[in-house]
Design a protein around this nucleic acid. Sequence first.
DNA 1: AGCACGCCGACT
DNA 2: GTCGGCGTGCTC
Length: 806
Amino acid sequence: MEAQIVVDVPTMQTNQPYTYHVAERFETVIEPGMRVIVPFGRGNRQVQGFVIRLMDDDSHQHELKDITDLVDLDAVLTDELLILADWLAKRNFAFSISILQAMLPNVMRAKYHKTMQVVDRKRVMAEPDLLTIFNDFDEVDEEQVSLSKEQLTGIHKLLKQGALKIGYQVQNRARAKRVLAVKPLKTPKELAQLRQILRPNARQQACLLTYLMQAKDEFVPQHLVVEQTGVSQATFKAAQAHGWIDRQMMEEYRLPKLTTPIETTRPLVLNQQQQAAYDQLSGTLGTTTSDTFLLEGITGSGKTEIYLQVMAKAIEQGQTAMMLVPEITLTPQMVRRVKGRFGQTVAVLHSGLSDGERYDEWRRVKRGEAKVVVGARSAVFAPLTNIGVIIIDEEHDASYKQEDNPRYHARDVARWRADWHHATLILGSATPSLESRARAQKGIYQLLQLTERALTSSLPSVSIVDMRTTIKNGGDDLFSPELLAGIQERLTKQEQSVLMLNRRGYANYLNCQACGYKPTCVNCDLVLTLHAAQHELVCHYCGYHIPVPPVCPNCGAPRLRPFGTGTEKAEERLQALFPDARILRMDFDTTRKKGAVDKLLTTFGKGQADILLGTQMIAKGLDFPAVTLVGVLNADTSLALPDFRAAERTFQLLAQVAGRAGRADKPGQVIIQTFNPDHYAIQYAKHHDYEGFYQQEMQLRHTWQYSPFFFTIQLKIGHEKQAEAAKIAYQLADWLKPYLGPQTVMLGPSAGSVARLKNKYYFRIVIKYRDGKTLLPALSELMQTGQELQRQHATLTIDRDPMTFV
DNA sequence: AGCACGCCGACT
DNA sequence: GTCGGCGTGCTC
């Protein structure tokens, strides 16, 4: 028997299955989807691999190596996931092994240990420098010892002579937690009798017997029994000696702890719109087709309740359900909401879990003990079977795209898995991505709209403050008089304010403080990025660049300034302006620690602070009834991003915060400060007008040939030397030209926005295309011929449908 | 990635 | 004449 194995060597040249011989003793056990250890390369170094196929034909040309060992007793990947991995690797120009690893919890990735093993002790002991290392050991972990120069030469010599050799060990870090468990061996009746005849002073034994009388006939972790009864270790030992109980080791899940118990919730009554959406969605469950819906519902329209009820329906029909949310929305409140409805059958997968917890949650899914999975991006690979519905909430969110290897978009994966399972896919958002909305327009997705708020409070009024005027009048460039007045009013009335500092695109473009003009690219209609070091303005999209102009090209005033401010500085200024206000700052720095977000939000939710000042993370999913003012300090920084999605991102962000104020009985107010009060993204956000924005943005995308009318691919070439990187980039561009096909545009090569990253210079090529018939295979080939690039010490990344252009 | 093979420069 | 530097090719 032979097995095709994908080995854990993530390079372009080894991105293919290798055939190994399966020893007879493994034949009955081995299955596709298992992890194995195989010898690889000339030195037969042991590496982890995945079995992707088994076969019987022995028509191999070469002598095959044997699989060393099986890591798993059960396949960790299903056939579905193996096929998906193959598709995803090809589609996204990723290494198969990287995708396979990404599908599993972190701990299941092998760790490798390099050891030095003594072969000829006599000769090793003859080296005085090495005595301290090998005196007591025959094998030493290379990482555990730091070697001096003399020792290094000594080891080198011995390796050459064969007196020492290098060993490789594959370590599987995935460990189930095992605890001592107990089970009664006697019937309740017998136990009751035993209790009768017990010495009266044997209090602990009596206590244990009472517990056992009402215990089920199954193993229960001993520590849980201790918690309930308070009996000691010795008592269990005695009970075992008496033959009352059986004790053995048992697996126990590391369940993430929750501070307070979860209250079970019942389905809420749906309003008419919600009910109509629910009927349509649930009607497609369990059918033999896969339907995709775009659920477009304004903030507060009750999308989550619909999700919960559709998932409940799927469970009812014996199917499973998956719900994806952006990482930062996966707050304890959200988890609580889902667990409140589905209880123990929910598995939660997100980055806040420890490795052990994550592994255990994953196993609960794998074993079919969890029927509902809630998680962030990577949860899309959860090993659910018989999926009835997949939900992607806030489907427009950029965090669904993994931006480093392996690159994938959870939406694509969800689409694929929904197809496989004939499941219903629901994309939900108040501000859908243009791609999804356009598909709904074309009828590829079914569009469901929710236009009413579930808890009939009206949308807040949004006012826009023109910061050009503020500055002209000698005002502060961070806090306009209007905003300051608003904050003061809230402080007086003891209501809360949320202030958002839009940090995207921070401090790297020029802005004329006289007229608000920002230098833009002639080819792309994108804002030029300031490269202060080179004293240049550069378009990150097509490479267009000009020297920094001394005066504003629009109005001639010498008032072009670099733009941007940090949250820390804003907090300082704010505190100086309102010395008595209690301010909470929420940004990357203050939320780095585990649980910090929860703590901050709880503090604010309890009303222990007046102002919450933060980056866009405060825009998502937060719901504080006492907040009546939301201020956006700098709405336009994200407009200036060198990215064709800049307007879309800005609109989505503003629409989201605009829906946050005054959700309870008190009316809300939103103040947006901007240098571009007339920009359509800001205007449409002001009027809560998604449709208007969609129409206008689609027109622009059409004109400029961007997504969703054109697909995009970004190639990045990195090299230690700038000239080399450029040379290779141009060579690649030339090589690709014949494959471009009709209606395909290649932009660049252009220099990366950060000239040097990790000591490498980057160049980028962006290709816009409609038909990838010749282009995509050419790019696959480029992956394979990457050998040549590697020789030149260059790196190449291919990013399909990139979300950022930095 | 990591290892062997191989072809040129500074040594015993 | 050899040790060892790194550039090159290959891993079932």
